[in-house]
Amino acid sequence: MSSPKANSIVNLVDVDLAVNLGRLRLACPVLVASGTFGYAREMAGLVDLGRLGGILPKTITQNPRPGNPPPRTYETSSGMLNSIGLDNDGIESFITHSLTYLAGLGTKIIVSIAGKSQQEFVDMAARLDGLPGVDALELNISCPNVSGGVDFGTDPAMCEAVVAGVCKACSVPVITKLTPNVTDVARIARAAEAGGCDAISLINTCLGMAINWRRQRSLLGRMMGGLSGPAIKPIALRAVFQAAQSVRIPIVGIGGIATIDDVMDFLVVGATAVQIGTANFYNPTASIQLLDALPAALRELGAASVSQVVGTLIVE
């Protein structure tokens, strides 16, 4: 007869962590967010990358972008502001220098793209479609640090059109990443769904500022930046809940996730998977720690799978 401890280990092994984001099947729901994990190589010395549900490399653009002038980040209470400005070497450099490496990691690679126009989004999607290592695309229509891109995230008609354009141009699953900097996130979520994407992810950062009043200057190289970290978790949880109430497609929760309680909160309000973002900066192994803690937390709710807890919030 086995001891209770042995039993619980068997139980934890039996928990089914696999989830589906539309056509994209993930071995587990813990992903790492774009812009918070480099191109994954940087993390290879710290994290067993193959265990992650998926990796979202730093957003790429059609052409190389130097990014914004420093200072690019500023720490705030329980959070940080950033105005990196999509610093990247462009899509061709990504394909040449990063994609082969990413393809060999044994996890799903969801390539984050940002275009200045609908045509750029479509062209990038078509270019990446079918390349080894491109398991899905995430449309970054929500970066607050570049002009152009965010319009797709705030105007429902433009959102639907760009999502539809991309979905037509490629055969891989498409996730649309939304901004919280809108009056009605549910409306944008419905627009993305109508455009035909497999899933939506939210939230990107909350637009914010920090200044030095004595010097009467911004503390960032650009006037405004995006707030991330534990400080924004309540906003993210609310946005995910509202989106989950409004669309049928799966939702990926992002925003200040740093503990297993955060992960469970997002699943219960309706996220099918989560992305770990800023926590990677201050706890580089956060993603694996949360993944390790997940089975026991699911068991606490008597669940044998992730899907059994998704969207189980009791609304009275």
């Binding site: 812009g35 918070t36 994990f37 480099g38 940087e42 993390m43 710290l46 730093k58 990014g67 420093p70 200072p71 690019r72 980040t73 720490e75 940080m80 950033n82 990196i84 610093d87 800023t278 990677n280 900066f281 201050y282 580089p284």
Partner: peptide, 11 residues
Amino acid sequence: ACGIGICFSCV
């Protein structure tokens, strides 16, 4: 923010 090359702050 990170010291490990993933945040692109310290440029």
